[in-house]
């Protein structure tokens, strides 16, 4: 069974008397240990879809299931706290804190017991994604964009969740940094068996994915070797 399942999701914007559907009867499953990429042009609904997966928004109809359970019944706050983690395009770290402190804050918010050596754990995580101790103790606003995104990925890893969602994680980065970030995301999948779901318009990232979907006109279509295959991943 897929770890995250969306069933008959509908999401629309009310435009006077008519409805503009962003997502229409979308059904799909995402598995552990897979690097999933959802491609789509600007305005296709990628960010909206991700916001439903991470419980920052609710669909107008349909369900999002985590391990067979509706995320509404889990509770949106608890779901975000203990089940999923989000990597944003704009990093969304706390700027007056250091990289290590951002990691520790994320760990303290989860319901997991804090390790006694939390400082060491935070530094080890940052080292794992390529940030040395000096940069780990630097304020976020003193780090480059690529370094901040690494901190955001380390924050996602620190919460020890099974699902990592990324909204255009390389949107603000150059090509070299994009490749490095993709390598780190692949490590999360293959070394930590995470379910990684990336929404992007970058076909470069899609080349590294295990499964690629395309969001077009409110429908999610699976792509196989660049060819469209099935509707809604079924």
């Amino acid at each position: 069974m897929s770890l995250v399942v969306v069933k008959d999701i509908n999401y629309f914007y009310q435009d006077g008397d008519s409805r503009r559907f962003i997502l229409k009867d979308v059904t799909c499953g995402f598995d552990r240990g897979k690097f999933n990429v959802i491609l789509g042009e600007s305005g296709s609904g990628k960010t909206t879809f991700l916001s439903l997966l991470c419980a920052l928004d609710k669909p107008h109809s349909g369900q999002v299931l985590y391990d067979g359970q509706d995320i509404g019944s889990i509770g949106f706050e608890e779901y975000r706290r203990n089940k999923v983690s989000i990597i944003f395009q704009a990093y969304n770290l706390i700027p007056y804190m250091t990289a290590a402190e951002n990691i520790k804050v994320a760990m303290s918010i989860t319901d997991n017991q804090l390790p006694p050596d939390i400082n060491e754990v935070a530094h080890n995580l940052l080292d794992y994604i390529g940030l040395d101790n000096a940069k780990a103790d630097r304020a976020i606003n003193k780090l480059s964009g690529g370094e901040q995104q690494r901190v955001a990925i380390a924050r996602a890893l620190a919460t020890n969740v099974d699902v990592i969602l990324a909204d255009e994680p390389t949107g603000n980065l150059d090509e070299d940094m994009e490749n490095e970030i993709v390598i780190i995301l692949q490590k999360l999948v293959h070394e930590h068996n995470k379910c990684v779901i990336v929404v992007t318009h970058s076909s470069q990232i899609a080349k590294h994915a295990d499964i690629v979907y395309k969001l077009r006109k409110g429908k999610l279509i699976t792509m196989d070797n660049g060819q469209l295959t099935m509707d809604n991943g079924q």
């Binding site: 706050e77 779901y79 706290r81 989000i86 944003f88 969304n92 770290l93 994320a106 918010i109």
Partner: peptide, 14 residues
Amino acid sequence: KHEIGVYLSLGERK
């Protein structure tokens, strides 16, 4: 507001 938004996105209770 941004800082509070980050806490809420991480699942912090309101």
